[in-house]
Simulated scan of single mutants.
Amino acid sequence: MNDIDAWVWWLVGAAALGIPLVVTAMPEFGMFAVGAVAAATVAGLGGGVVVQVLVFVAVSVALIAVVRPIANRHARRPQLATGIDALKGKQAIVLERVDGSGGGRIKLAGEIWSARSLDTDRAYEVGQEVDVVDIEGATAIIM
């Protein structure tokens, strides 16, 4: 295999690594593709096979070691609360008197829920606006 063939094979490898990058959205494949392009450059400049492989490995590992942690830090997004977790912290309206023993009702997110007071000594009267602090089963804990 001559030098021209080597750089062409490295570019074919880079393109082949780009396919799983697009299909799986795993950036590591892109980092390997960049390593293959670096190895193709070395091959085009007349570097031997051992040097080409070392450049491929060094560039790929360096990118994964440096770029991946930075990308992970910036890609973190707050989790979207769903289900019961989305109801915590919401406001509700008391429909039936609510106290610490339970038995009261509130309107929460357009639905009627049984409710009890977080503070067992506190009662909430009809029409009061309250905050939901937790959900236990089908009962909203309010304050």
Rank of each mutant, 00 (worst) to 15 (best):
G137Q: 06
I141Y: 06
W10Q: 07
V61F: 10
T41G: 15
A15V: 13
D134T: 09
N2L: 04
A39V: 07
I135A: 05
I19T: 10
A33W: 06
G102A: 02
A115C: 07
A36Q: 05
I19A: 13
R105P: 05
G48S: 13
Q79I: 13
Q91T: 13
M31S: 08
R77K: 13
A115Y: 06
A43M: 02
R116H: 08
S114H: 12
K90M: 09
A15H: 00
G47L: 05
A65F: 01
M31I: 06
M1V: 10
L108Q: 11
E111K: 13
H74Y: 14
Q91P: 12
G103R: 06
G44F: 10
K107G: 05
R116G: 05
E136K: 11
D119F: 04
F29M: 06
V23R: 07
V12T: 08
V132D: 03
P27I: 01
T24L: 00
A39M: 03
S114L: 13
G104I: 09
G103N: 08
D119N: 14
Q52P: 04
T120W: 04
A71D: 13
K90Q: 14
A58N: 02
K90T: 12
V22F: 00
R73W: 07
G103S: 12
A43P: 01
G47Q: 05
H74Q: 11
V94M: 10
A65N: 02
L87A: 04
L45R: 04
G30N: 02
R97W: 01
T41I: 13
I70N: 08
A86V: 04
S101G: 11
P78H: 00
M143S: 15
G13P: 13
E96Y: 01
T139M: 04
R73G: 14
G89P: 11
